[in-house]
């Protein structure tokens, strides 16, 4: 079976959930081979093997952290060359993060391959993998495939449920030589985002978001309390972010994160097209808004027309009571 290269998203060897989803999807089209760049390959290998990686190609070098994007492109290209020794890989899969998409783009160009970004599903097809995408703010669903070269595809988080399927996961060192462009953009300093202790927004099963209706940074604790009672991540509309009430890293929508949780709760959010673009594919949507005409109610499975400062705390209390 042809190899499918999977780019591993990790923090020092702690593999992030979207990678497990990629491994699960990769098994539909071939044999997953994980590509692990940076420290921690041996730690990661156990997890990667559990989710089906037959092999883990590992490379570690300071360049991966010290320079933007290109060193990782060089490494993936080397991985493709290595895989090509046994016939060309069936596909290269990467997470649809900002960086994942940029790596994918440059890699595709170098391989002379087409690229598909932001897939929400992937299946084998007669002429190569077929990717499902959700476009025009999720108003349309498209099916596409790469018609030239090795398909390079980025996949959004929460596109598949990770399924364990133990495989060998043998770690092999991947020799990488960096090209001239690799050291073009220096990362002068890096500050990791502080963990909120809540689930990662794009990976969470439940997301509770607040908008302009929350009325101030000091009121966001109402949203956070509900989120914590449900074990959810907290999101925000751009209006709330622009007002400085919540960090941009929590923005849901076209220019923020796309989320596709089991449950999305919108509090004080009107439901503008750019916000919907980031949450419309959520399985279940509920909203609290005092305006019965708010467009968000066109999307909801359940909506409450009312003041969020009444409804949300009551809901939180009820959730806590039922869980307790």
């Amino acid at each position: 079976m042809a190899e499918v290269l999977v780019y591993v998203d990790h923090v020092d060897g702690a593999v992030r959930k979207p990678t497990l989803e990629l491994l699960t999807l990769a098994r539909r089209i071939g044999e997953p081979v994980a590509v692990h760049l940076g420290a921690g390959a041996d730690t990661a290998a156990a997890t990667l093997a559990e989710y089906g990686a037959v092999k883990v190609l590992a490379a570690d070098a300071p360049e991966f952290a010290d320079y933007l994007v290109v060193p990782k492109v060089d490494a993936l290209q080397a991985a493709c060359d290595a895989a090509s020794a046994d016939g060309s890989p069936a596909a290269v899969l990467l997470p649809s993060s900002a960086e994942g998409k940029e790596i994918a783009a440059r890699l595709a160009l170098r391989l002379g391959s087409g690229i598909i970004t932001d897939a929400v599903d992937l299946e084998a097809g007669d002429e190569g993998p077929v990717a499902t995408q959700s476009v025009f703010a999720a108003a349309f669903t498209t099916k596409s495939r790469v018609s030239k070269g090795t398909p390079v595809i980025t996949v959004k988080p929460n596109s598949a449920a990770p399924e364990a399927a133990p495989a060998a996961g043998t770690v092999e060192q991947l020799p990488v030589s960096f090209g001239e462009l690799a050291t073009g953009t220096k990362v002068v300093s890096r500050k990791e985002r502080e963990s909120t202790g809540r689930p990662e927004l794009t990976e969470a099963a439940i997301v509770v978001s607040g908008g302009r209706g929350v009325g101030g940074a000091e009121n966001f604790n109402v949203v956070e309390a509900l989120a914590d009672s449900l074990g959810a991540a907290v999101g925000a509309s751009r209006a709330a972010v622009d007002a400085g009430w919540y960090p941009h890293s929590s923005q849901v929508g076209q220019t923020g994160k796309t989320v596709s949780p089991q449950l999305y709760v919108a509090a004080g959010i009107s439901g503008a097209i750019q916000h919907r673009a980031g949450m419309q594919t959520s399985k279940t949507i509920v909203a609290v808004n005092k305006d019965a005409e708010a467009p968000i109610f066109d999307l909801v499975d359940y909506g409450v027309v009312g003041d969020l400062f009444e409804v949300v705390p009551q809901l939180t209390e009820e959730v806590t009571a039922r869980k307790g």
């Binding site: 077929v130 476009v135 669903t141 030239k148």
Partner: peptide
């Protein structure tokens, strides 16, 4: 280098 096969 990519082909959209279907849009619904």
């Amino acid at each position: 280098w990519t082909k959209v096969e279907d849009a619904t």
